[in-house]
Amino acid sequence: MTQETETLAVKMEAVSKWYGTFQVLKEIDLSVKRQERIVVCGPSGSGKSTLIRCINLLEEYQVGQITVDGRVLSPEIKNAESVRQEVGMVFQQFNLFPHLTVLENCTLAPTEARGTPLAEANETAMKFLEKVRIPEQSGKYPSQLSGGQQQRVAIARSLCMNPKMMLFDEPTSALDPEMISEVLDVMIDLAESGMTMICVTHEMGFARQVADRVIFMDAGEIVEQADPETFFGNPQSTRTKKFLGQVLAH
């Protein structure tokens, strides 16, 4: 483990993944520094969700190496849970636990996975529910909340484990348009507080405002990556230009 790897949140080296005979990731090389904010964009089926799902071991990969926070992720890694506890993830479909209240959703993992005492877990949960601006909903069930509120609870739930980085898999894609900004505002706050973030999203305004680097993926490869100004102002590849033309048209 070199000095360089120690300061990296994520390092992916020549990572390839197949679903059967279909190659979904093609020799991905990616380094993410601590506190860096990355946005990954690209057309459907480009492998961007698969990419971030490999980082918290929701997906396995066949070739290459992924190092997260200094730990090498191998397919036979024992104790995958300890890696996942350091990497928070927010899903497109929220995936809140419907049989638990908002507060219980947030305290389940700290109490069950880490043995945190309930009183402490409750305090932490209320703190993060305040950060995402819905502390008054703590006693409600997910079915009683709007989509935007549910997603913010999902963000708070992940933050309650005090992860070292957060992964977002199209967090606003399932939301009605009027609720997108309330979730993006929370994500912007989070970015400004110094959290390492990797976001798969179509929200280019968010990317421009917050990202340190924007990555464009297509057909399993990283086609182009650059800081937002360069990426949006002067894209190099024709594929990138085509994609931006489609996405920014409306």
């Binding site: 918290n56 929701l58 849970e81 300890s82 890696v83 996942r84 506890q85 350091e86 990497v87 928070g88 993830m89 899903f91 479909q93 995936n95 809140l96 636990f97 419907p98 049989h99 389940l108 993992a109 069950e112 996975a113 999902a154 739930r157 992940s158 484990m161």
Partner: peptide, 27 residues
């Protein structure tokens, strides 16, 4: 039970049996 439930619970770092007992079975 939607697959997302298991994935969200996994992503939070819960063990297999905790997931079955606390997330899947109650639902």
């Amino acid at each position: 039970i939607p697959r997302g439930q298991e994935e969200a619970a996994k992503a939070l770092g819960l063990s297999y049996w905790k997931i079955q007992r606390k997330v899947i079975f109650p639902q």
